[in-house]
């Protein structure tokens, strides 16, 4: 009897913990304030440029990931060279180092550091496209990855 009363609250707690974990993992990963801020900054820039259609498009973001524009450096024909064609899969650099998946749902700490985001867009767009990405392209790409 004494054992039961002792264990009851504990087992309740365990059940509650399990329910919470299940509930949390069922919720799709949503962009937090840091990611929202980066997107908002890009939106401000994109709105001021020609070609703004009223919103970023995940579909265009996917197209950028999969494109092979052949205007950049020969060893990096596409974003998929390193990031694979799936946001959910881990990629690899040309020297064999693993790159965590780009989807926010799989790698939740992505797109939180504006300097890191800018640095890699700067390098990778130049390597793959041979030019900087526009704010519209960056916003589309991030919108796609944050929704994955």
């Amino acid at each position: 009897m004494t054992r039961l009363t002792f264990f009851k609250p504990l087992s309740r707690l365990a059940v509650a913990a399990c329910v919470t974990i299940v509930a949390l993992s069922a919720v799709p990963a949503a962009a937090g304030p840091a990611q929202d801020q980066i997107l908002a900054g890009l939106k401000g820039e994109a709105q001021a440029a020609p070609g703004w259609t009223g919103a970023f498009s995940a579909e265009r973001g996917r197209a950028l990931l999969l494109a092979s524009p052949a205007t950049g450096k020969p060893d990096t024909p596409s974003c998929t060279t390193c990031h694979t064609d799936s946001p959910l899969k881990a990629g690899q650099t040309r020297t064999g180092k693993a790159i965590a998946p780009m989807a926010l749902s799989v790698t939740p700490d992505r797109y939180t550091d504006p300097e890191k985001v800018e640095k890699w867009f700067g390098r990778n767009c130049n390597s793959v496209l041979g030019r900087p990405c526009t704010a519209l392209e960056k916003g589309d790409f991030l919108t796609f990855m944050m929704g994955q």
Partner: peptide, 11 residues
């Protein structure tokens, strides 16, 4: 670094 073994690695 901007043309680092075929990649842009600029800082």
């Amino acid at each position: 670094l901007s043309d680092h073994f075929g990649e842009d690695a600029s800082l």
